[in-house]
Amino acid sequence: MSDLTQDPTGGADSTHPDLVALLRGELSNAETLRVAEHLDECEACRADLADTAVGHSLLSGAGRTLQPPASAVEASAEPAPLPPAPTPPGLLARWSRPLALVAAATALVVGSAAVTGVVLRGGDEDVPVATPQQADFEPVEGSGSGRVQMVDDDGAVSMTIETRDLPKAGKGEFYQVWLFNPETGKMLSLGILGPEGKGGFEFPDTLLGGYQVVDVSLEKDDGDPAHSVTSVLRATYAGSDGESGTAAG
């Protein structure tokens, strides 16, 4: 079966088929020398080889740079992050959606693996994974309130946030959503709450790890990416009820 995909660059497929293999060192010595002989006599293939060499050089450099370090490959028991073609790289497919929602200036929220296990499955394998689970926001400062809801759908967790009675953010201020682990103090900066005090986020549960609390803080656009001192709301998932202990372990 020949590949008849049209080539808008006008590249001639009639030239020697082994130029890529030549540059990549995929040919036997004999084959390499035969291509060399052909190149001696063929102007079209020499021109082709020049273009091919430029592409090959860019690609092999990028491939070398982006290769995961050998230590990481050995240390990781997981399969390679990019599954075999022809499906598009899983990393892109899995990661591009959440940020679309960040970009939409909706709040974005992340839970932890333990949280997902607890909240979405409750330690009971028979509970349908699409059952939404929720927790209420408690005010840390002021009198705001609200609710966080999560749904697990085949490895992708959707979270939605609704807040009430948060004071309107001043000029240059905004409400930011974080994940928080009270034990370690670890925080993951997530995104900005929409103007209505609402937001939603989807993310792969592989991203999850080590957080139990969703935190909303009032931030200033002062270039400091760290969490401000002003937490206004918190909702606790893990450890908030009897199921947590069993499923988190």
Binding site: D7, V20, D51
Partner: peptide, 11 residues
């Protein structure tokens, strides 16, 4: 053929 076209198109 795809590798060849892709490499040149990338350039």
């Amino acid at each position: 053929a795809r590798a060849s076209r892709g490499t040149r198109r990338l350039a």
